[in-house]
Every structure is written in structure tokens, then in C-alpha cells.
Amino acid sequence: MARSIGAKSVQSHLAKLFERHGKPVLIRADNGREFIADTLLDWLGEQGVRGVFIAKASPWQNGYTERFNGTMERELFGHEIYHSVLEVQHVIDEWLIKYNTVRPHRSLAGQTPAAYAKMLTDASCP
């Protein structure tokens, strides 16, 4: 059973991300109901963040997400049978840690995201 995430929950998560990483100029999102909710759009506007929506049936407008989703599907869901939602959650959590910290990315010149982030942090510190 899929878990629905409401606009208020999305807003709460975004607020934490903004506090930790700063506010982006824009957020690109599909037209899912969470991102077309008036309350969320109003809140983003108050934060000075512009919502940019992807046209329906236009996955090329969101290449990063499409690439991530394709990688996740190939690596996690193409060859396993899962027996519970809890098992899927655990597998995804472990995979995300690997994907975000250990796995080298071509787009980062073969560095892991953690190494790349450290390099940026080190470069910005006097």
C-alpha cells in the first residue's frame, strides 16, 4: 500500500532542508498533488522559492530524477521479490546510504557524493 504524503508533510521536510542547506531559487517538481497544493505553493512563495512544474508526459524536463529513478529501479527492483513493505523500506534505506556516500558517480568525475561534498566544503573554508 502506497503512503500518501500531504502538502504539510512536504512543507515540514522542505523547511528542515532549507534550514540545513539554505533555500534554493526554485524547486522543480512534477504535478503530483503534493506540489500543486495551494498551501504549499503559498508557503514556497513566502520562502522566496519559485515552483517550476514539469509538464505532464514530459520526463525529459526532469532528467536528474528520471536518471535516479531508473538507476534505483534497475539496482533494486528488477531482480528481487520482496515480502513486506518493511523489507522494501530497509533495502531502500541501505541502498540510499550506498548511493549517497559510497557509490562513485560519473557526474562527479568518479567521486562519491560524500567526497565531492567534502571537497566543496574544504574549498569554501578559508
Rank of each mutant, 00 (worst) to 15 (best):
D93N: 13
V10P: 01
Q111M: 14
G45M: 08
D30E: 06
S84G: 13
H79G: 06
A37C: 09
G48M: 11
P126F: 08
G70Y: 03
G32H: 03
V49N: 07
P24L: 10
K98E: 14
G63W: 02
H105F: 13
K118T: 01
E73H: 12
A55N: 14
G32I: 03
L14H: 08
T39I: 14
S84D: 11
V25A: 15
L86C: 07
G78F: 02
E46S: 15
Y99T: 00
L120V: 06
P113I: 00
E73C: 14
T101P: 03
V49Y: 01
L26W: 03
K56H: 08
H21S: 04
I5Q: 14
E34Y: 01
W95F: 10
L14K: 06
T71Y: 00
E87Q: 15
M1D: 02
A114R: 12
H105A: 06
L41S: 10
A29M: 11
E94N: 12
R3P: 07
V25N: 05
E73A: 05
L26H: 02
A123L: 15
P59F: 06
E46G: 15
L40Q: 00
M119H: 13
A115E: 14
P24A: 01
S12R: 15
G48E: 13
S4I: 12
V91N: 01
G70Q: 08
G32V: 01
D122W: 00
T65Q: 15
S4A: 09
Y99L: 02
